[in-house]
């Protein structure tokens, strides 16, 4: 193990430490939180030989840039981004060996998706709250990575001897999601709000919704047609899954995110499929969304396929890194 420093030379609009979120804290009033796009975060970690839930950096908007003080193994995933190493273009969604002193720049294209993820082989030194590096603004746990700061990490990566223009060292089965230019299709499992509001199923199915700038980590607020229940029956505050589609009193649709709290009595018309959540985590203002009703079994089949792809990558990466002599990934595969 050795300690490596990343000197942060530029940060985006919001740049934080992140991971897949807290476990078992919702029963104590703390939302799981964690990476908005869990798929990209998990894949970034697997691509550098980390456990999928390791701490990494999430960047929203602007440009993230840094200079490592030793050779590092890193990967950039998430929304389509321009990645350069010392000015030369480099690939996203792939392990990259960056030599000491070379500046890495990551500029996401906000029109295609909001968040990029940077994982570096090793364990970053960062604070945790209830066992997780994920920020929780409500509890004053900001976890911001700031320009001019140094991110320290413990790594066993010692570099590879590679010459320029050699073929890529890794050819891994990477499940790269599509970030289409047109509307994104989100699968939704219907909830009891569908029965309570006559005609809402058809309205949602036929419309295209637009993400508004009032959206945040608690929820995406969408412009588009909605209907309200006829009755004023009070719904007692209750817990809601991530991805729940709720209709507040105003004419908008809200898709709740990973930092949601109890719902304050608004009807829930459905819950986005687990397999659609990473895409929702990438939706920014102006993004058009279409919702497709899906039954629970079909929704879970899609998620299982996605999960199998991620696992396959995990095994392939562990084997590749094992062959190169670092054992860490093999240890946490089981």
């Amino acid at each position: 193990m050795k300690t490596v420093a990343l000197d942060i030379t530029s940060t985006g609009w919001v740049t934080t430490f992140q991971d897949l979120g807290r476990r078992d804290t919702e029963r104590r009033g703390v939302p799981t939180g964690g990476a908005a796009d869990q798929h990209s975060a998990a894949v970034a970690n697997l691509l550098v030989g980390n456990p999928r839930g390791a701490a990494l950096i999430e960047n929203l908007g602007g440009e993230l840039a840094f200079v490592p003080d030793a050779d590092v193994l890193l990967a950039v995933t998430g929304a389509p981004a321009r990645v350069t190493v010392a000015g030369s273009p480099a690939d996203g969604w792939s392990p990259l060996v960056v030599p000491a002193g070379h500046e890495v720049r990551v500029r996401g294209d906000m029109d295609q998706g909001t968040r990029t993820y940077l994982a570096v082989n090793g364990t970053p030194r960062t604070k945790t709250l209830l066992g997780s590096a994920a920020p929780d603004a409500r509890m004053g746990f900001g976890q911001a990575v700031t320009r001019g700061s140094r991110v320290l990490l413990e790594t066993e990566f010692r570099g590879f001897r590679r010459r320029l223009f050699e073929p890529p060292l890794f050819r891994l089965p990477v499940p790269v999601p599509r970030f289409d230019a047109g509307p994104w299709d989100i699968d939704v499992v219907a909830g009891h709000g569908v029965q309570a509001i006559a005609g809402i199923r058809e309205v949602i199915e036929e419309a295209t919704y637009v993400v508004t700038p009032r959206s945040n980590h608690v929820g995406l607020r969408l412009d588009g047609p909605v209907l309200h229940p006829d009755t004023d029956t009070e719904i007692v505050s209750h817990g809601v899954p991530i991805g729940a589609l709720q209709i507040p009193h105003a004419d908008e649709l809200i898709v709740l995110g990973r930092y949601r709290s109890l719902t304050a009595g608004y009807p829930i018309v459905g819950v986005a499929s687990r397999a659609s959540l990473p895409l929702l985590g990438q939706a920014g203002p102006g993004r058009r969304l279409r919702f497709r009703w899906i039954d629970r079994e079909a929704s879970l089949r899609r998620f299982a396929r996605r999960e199998a792809e991620v696992r396959a990558l995990g095994y392939a990466a562990a084997e590749a890194f094992g062959a190169l002599g670092f054992m860490e990934p093999l240890r946490h595969m089981n």
Binding site: R27, V236, H238, E307
Partner: peptide, 30 residues
């Protein structure tokens, strides 16, 4: 119910969210 359920927590249950009159049980479908 919540106290009992957490004391006998079944495999695959990730977390629970307490409402005033409800309990949301979140599980890992894998």
């Amino acid at each position: 119910f919540r106290d009992r359920f957490l004391a006998h927590r079944p495999h695959g249950v990730l977390d629970v969210v307490s409402g005033l009159e409800s309990l949301l049980i979140e599980f890992d479908p894998m």
